[in-house]
Design a protein around this nucleic acid. Structure first.
Lengths: 202, 202
DNA sequence: GCTAGCATGTAACTCGTTACATGATTGT
DNA sequence: ACAATCATGTAACGAGTTACATGCTAGC
C-alpha cells in the first residue's frame, strides 16, 4: 500500500520518530546535522515537498500552531507512518550504498593534469575530512548521555561512530595515495620502484 | 567557455583519455567496471545523451565506422576535449564526496524495527561487500603490468587499491556494529559493556 | 533602523532513470 | 532456429536543485 514514497521521504519520516513534533525548518536542521553525512542534505523546498506528500498519505499529521502571532506548522508521525516506516525497513532491500566520490573520479584520470594538481586536490580533501570529523565529533558528543542500549540515541550514536571511522579511513587512504605520488615528484625519479605501491592491505 | 557539462560528462570524457576510440556501448562497459564503484553506472540512454552533448561541444569527435555491414559510431576525445577536461580538473573544486548510504540510513532509525531485522540487514551488507571486493579485485588484476608510474593504468590502480581498502574498512565497520548489537540480543544481557565500542581507531 | 535567523512556499530546470522500440551479428 | 550480445536511440517521468518571493521576529 502506497509504495510511491522516495527514500528521502522515509528519511524525513525517520527523523520524526525521535519524539518531537517539528516544523519543516527544524527538519532541515536535523537533516543537516545527521542525514548530511551519509545520505543527503535536502534543500528546504524538497523538505516541504516531502512533508506535503507524507501528509497527503497520512503518514504524518500537520498541526497549525501559533508561535507568538505567527502561524507555524508542526509535523508529527502518525501510527500509519510508524507502520509504513517499519514495513519499508522490513520488506524492501537496503541496496548497496552509492558513492559519488568526486575525488576518486578525478584521481582516476590523474594523468591528464600535473602531479602537483592532483596532490593539491588530495591535500584539500584531507583538510575537508578533518573539518567533517570535527563536525561529526560535535554531533557525537551531543548524543552522549542517551547512547546506551534502550536509550533514544543508541542507533544515531552507532551511526556517528561508523561515520567517524569512515572519515578516519578516508584520511588514511588519501595519505597513502599522497605517499605513493610523492615518491615520484618533480626532479625525483629513482629510489626503489618495487616495494611501495603494493602493501596488500587486506 | 562552455561550463554546462555535468560531471558524468567529464567522467565519460575521462574514459576516452585512455587511448582508444570507443562506441557508446563500450563506454558503458568501461563505466561498469570502473566508474560504478565510486561514481555511478550511468544508464545506456544517459551515455548516448552525454556523448551527443560532448559531440555538440566538439569535445569528442564521432566517427561512423563499418563493422561488417553494420553502422557503428565510435567516439574519440579531441584536443579541445583534452583542454576542457584539464581546465575542469584544475579550475573547479572537487567538492566533498556524497555518500548515499542506505544501510547507515536504516541503521540510524534501527529503533523502529526488531533487532534481528537490523542484524540481518548488516549481514547482507557484509555479503554484498564481499562480492564487491571480488569484482574490484578482478578489475585490479586486469590492471597489473601497466600500473607503474608513467604507465597508462597507474591512476586507475591507485583508485582500485583505494576502493579495496574502502570495502575492507566498511566490512570492519559493519562487523563492529554487529558486535555492538549482538551483546544485547534476545536473552543476552551481560558481558563487559565498557571496553568494546570505543577503540578510538584514529 | 537594520540585519540575521525563522518559516513557508512556487517555478523552472537538469540529471538521470525505466520502459519501449529497433535491428544486426555471433555462437550453439 | 534461436538466444545472447552488440548497438543505438526515443519518450515519459521523477527526484532534487537553484532562483525567486514573501513575511515575521529578535537582537544589536
Amino acid at each position: 500500500m502506497s509504495q510511491d514514497i522516495p527514500v528521502t521521504g522515509y528519511a524525513i519520516l525517520g527523523l520524526l520518530t525521535f519524539g518531537d513534533e517539528l516544523t519543516g525548518y527544524e527538519v532541515k536542521q536535523r537533516a543537516d546535522i545527521t542525514l548530511r553525512f551519509y545520505w543527503v542534505a535536502p534543500a528546504m523546498s524538497q523538505i516541504y515537498t516531502e512533508l506535503r506528500r507524507l501528509t497527503d498519505h497520512e503518514l504524518v499529521a500537520a498541526r497549525a500552531r501559533h508561535d507568538g502571532g505567527r502561524e507555524v506548522t508542526t509535523y508529527a508521525i502518525t501510527d500509519a507512518g510508524q507502520a509504513a516506516l517499519r514495513a519499508w525497513m522490513d520488506h524492501t532491500p537496503a541496496g548497496f550504498p552509492v558513492l559519488k566520490h568526486t575525488v576518486l573520479l578525478r584521481l582516476l584520470i590523474g594523468h591528464v593534469t600535473a602531479p602537483d594538481e592532483t596532490r593539491r586536490m588530495l591535500h584539500e580533501y584531507v583538510d575537508e575530512l578533518a573539518r567533517a570529523r570535527e563536525d561529526l565529533t560535535g554531533v557525537r558528543e551531543m548524543l552522549r548521555g542517551a547512547d546506551e542500549p534502550g536509550e533514544p540515541f543508541r542507533f544515531p550514536s552507532l551511526v556517528a561512530d561508523w561515520g567517524l571511522d569512515y572519515f578516519a579511513a578516508e584520511t588514511r587512504h588519501a595519505q597513502r595515495a599522497l605517499e605513493s605520488l610523492a615518491t615520484h615528484g618533480p626532479g625525483d625519479g629513482d629510489g626503489e620502484t618495487s616495494g611501495e605501491g603494493t602493501d596488500s592491505p587486506a
